[in-house]
Amino acid sequence: MSARFAIGDTVRIAERYPPGHIRTPYYIRGKTGVVADVLGAFPNPEERAKARDGLPELPLYRIRFRQTEAWPDYDGDPGDTLDMEIYHHWLEPDKPAERSG
C-alpha cells in the first residue's frame, strides 16, 4: 500500500475503540492534525500482537497536533505541538465542509 497522504495534509484520527493492542493513543482519537512526515511502510502491530505477520505493511505517518487540539484546556503556548506516529488505517481525510455543516 502506498502512502495516501502527503506532508501538510490535514487529517482526522478515527474515533473508534476496538479491543486489542492498539498504538493509537485514546487521547488523540477523533482529533485533527497535520501530516508532518511520511515514514514508509511498517507491519501492522495490531496483527503482530496476535503473532501474525502484520502484512501487508501499512504506511506510517508522523502527525502533528496543536496541544490546544489535543487538550482544549491546554494552558501553555498556543503554538506548542504534540507529534506522534499513526498507521494509515487510523487516518481519515479532513472534510471541513462536512464538519462545519
Partner: peptide, 12 residues
C-alpha cells in the same frame, strides 16, 4: 520557544 512533545507510540 515552541515546545514540541513527541509521543514515541510506534516504530520510531
Amino acid at each position: 520557544v515552541t515546545v514540541r512533545v513527541h509521543d514515541s507510540n510506534a516504530d520510531m
